[in-house]
């Protein structure tokens, strides 16, 4: 074991973590917004909303993320006529891909609210919009939070795929150091440890939230 290699390159590698976090943050926000829209469309009774949203979700859930990245990477220049920026290609693929997963979480959250809640709200005279805003969504959101946090952890891990189109995020930098110093064991253990620390914090938070939720709403 030679921990010196980690100490010598610590600054350089951790510098990539900034980009990793940035990619994750943008993907989570963008993916969630697009995901909510897709979920609402999927739950709609209008077929021209329902069918495209359903097709979109099944399409992207059936593909590997890495293939989506390449596909958009090749598609972009065709549409814009200009060579694509790797950063933009990565962000767009992440958002487009993860939105399909967010959509399913949101849909499950909304469907987990018993129909009696809607009926009770409507019976008391609330409009459909107010029922959604004040009765259904607040409960649904609380039910979803643990799953959303878990998905955020997955996205944080998925950003490591930016590597394949040359983004210099954390894993890419570890890889570059390894190419120079040939210290694979130390470097990849270190990379694993950094991801593990951040992701376990996220997983732990998700478990806490889940327990808190079950206390409030047993079963």
């Amino acid at each position: 074991m030679d921990t010196g290699v980690i100490i010598r390159n610590f600054g350089f590698m951790m510098g990539g973590l900034g980009l990793t976090l940035q990619l994750a943050a943008i993907t989570i926000v963008g993916g969630l917004i697009l995901g909510i829209l897709l979920a609402l469309a999927r739950l709609s009774s209008r077929f021209w909303l329902y069918w495209p949203a359903t097709a979109y979700i099944h399409f992207f859930r059936g593909l590997p993320l890495i293939l989506v990245i390449f596909w958009l990477y090749f598609l972009f220049p065709v549409i814009t006529g200009k060579p694509v920026n790797a950063y933009v290609a990565a962000i767009v693929s992440f958002v487009v891909f993860e939105a399909a997963y967010f959509a399913e979480i949101v849909r499950a959250g909304i469907q987990s609210i018993p129909r009696g809640q809607t009926m009770a709200a409507r019976a008391s005279g609330l409009s459909a919009r107010d029922t959604a805003m004040y009765v259904i969504l607040p409960q649904a959101l609380r039910n979803m939070v643990p799953a959303l946090v878990t998905q955020a952890v997955v996205i944080f891990q998925d950003t490591s795929l930016g590597y394949v189109i040359g983004l210099r995020e954390f894993l890419r930098r570890v890889n570059l150091v390894d190419a120079r110093e040939a210290r694979s064991v130390e470097l990849y253990l270190f990379a694993g440890l950094v991801y593990f620390a951040i992701c376990s914090a996220g997983s732990l938070a998700s478990q806490r939230l889940e327990k808190g939720r079950q206390r409030m709403h047993p079963a």
């Binding site: 795929l161 990849y188 990379a191 992701c199």
Partner: peptide, 8 residues
């Protein structure tokens, strides 16, 4: 589960 598959 808490490390990216790519790192593994």
């Amino acid at each position: 589960r808490n490390t990216p598959f790519l790192v593994q």
